[in-house]
Design a protein around this nucleic acid. Structure first.
Length: 106
DNA sequence: TGGGTGACTAAGT
DNA sequence: CACTTAGCCACCC
């Protein structure tokens, strides 16, 4: 299952996500915009099927929260990469988009 | 060809 | 800050 889909949209998404440097993150909407689309949902769908081959944890929602049901898994990577995190008093946490948000030069 | 689904976003409560 | 509602886009049957 070495994801090598001939699908254009899928390949573009994987390419953008793979280009995100360590310690940085991008929102689903930003990834979609990077490939010239606004299908943030489609990006998430692609990640759910091919995320195994890309640093999916570097892709978060517009609120700074990681993919649903994968927050704990993403937290392990953030702590290991030194990604800036913001903790709330309620015990919840989120990625500091103001500092970790990555902007593709292309 | 048409309809339903989803690792989303933004706005309102 | 957290939850709910409506809107959008790409993919599968």
């Amino acid at each position: 299952m070495t994801a090598a889909p001939s699908d254009d949209f899928v390949s573009l998404v994987l390419e953008v996500v793979a280009d995100i440097p360590e310690g940085c993150v991008m929102t689903y909407g930003d990834v979609a915009a990077a490939i010239g689309s606004r299908a943030a949902r489609a990006v998430g769908t692609v990640m759910s099927h091919y995320g195994s081959d890309v640093p999916w944890w570097r892709v978060v929602r517009a609120s700074g929260h990681p993919a649903i049901d994968h927050e704990t898994r993403a937290l392990q990577h953030y702590r290991a990469e030194g990604t800036p995190l913001l903790w709330t008093r309620t015990g919840s946490w989120r990625v500091d988009l103001a500092t970790a948000r990555h902007v593709p030069t292309a």
